[in-house]
């Protein structure tokens, strides 16, 4: 009986220890995270960007591949392309329908990659996650580069006040997969396949 109790206590301590190694990071929403898309069509290249990005990630830096979980949330209504009229079209029901679906999300479910997150070292991997745009969710695989950095006083200049993760990813999506139908009139101005670029800074929660 005593041995069984000791075994259970040890198991609980080990699992608690494992959980304690997981760190929580919040996406830096004050201009240090950017999400953009590039539509490279025959007549025009359109780049839309937003820095209204939020979300959080939990990760154990020693075994990032098996422990990472989180979500990146983008305010769909805040994408800007530099032309007001085009931005209004982008927000409209034909494209992002930002009024009905104000958020675009990317949920990270699994990472395929090797190695630990050592401060200053970049790790490459593939994220398996769910991308939701205009209320349509699709499971996708995204090549990603992630790096973990320790806080230094110089980072105050960037409004960063904790250890941080830098996450970068670029991947193409077909807009039709997410319920965006490009009108044939605009076919040569808007591409059917759009490149999404994530440039995320996530700061450790205190």
């Amino acid at each position: 009986m005593f041995v069984r109790i000791v075994t259970v206590v040890v198991a609980l301590l080990v699992s608690a220890g494992g959980h304690a190694a997981e760190l929580k990071f919040n996406v830096h929403s004050f201009g240090m995270s950017r999400v953009s898309f590039t539509s490279d069509a025959m007549l025009e290249t359109i780049v839309g960007t937003t820095s209204k990005v939020s979300g959080s990630l939990t990760i154990d830096p020693k075994k990032p591949a098996t422990t990472v979980k989180g979500q990146i949330v983008v305010d769909a209504a805040t994408f800007r392309t530099g032309i007001d009229m085009r931005d209004a079209h982008l927000r409209s029901a034909k494209f992002l329908d930002a009024k009905t679906h104000p958020k675009a999300t990317f949920s990270i479910e699994k990472v395929v990659g090797r190695g630990a997150l050592v401060p200053g070292k970049k790790l490459k991997g593939t994220v398996h996650g769910t991308l939701t745009i205009k209320g349509v969710s699709k499971t996708i695989k995204v090549p990603i580069v992630v790096a973990f950095y320790k806080w230094t006083p110089e980072l105050k200049n960037f409004k960063v006040f904790g250890d941080l993760l830098r996450i970068k990813a670029s991947f193409p999506i077909k807009v039709a997969d997410y319920g965006v139908k490009v009108p044939s009139v605009l076919g040569k101005k808007v591409a059917q396949s759009v490149m999404i670029n994530l440039n995320i800074t996530a700061v450790q929660a205190k």
Partner: peptide, 19 residues
């Protein structure tokens, strides 16, 4: 956009020194 991109590039340059 130019300023935001520059700020992120500056951050990367600073962080690259750690590595």
């Amino acid at each position: 956009q130019r300023n935001e991109k520059k700020k992120l590039d500056d951050l990367d340059r600073l962080l690259d020194k750690q590595g």
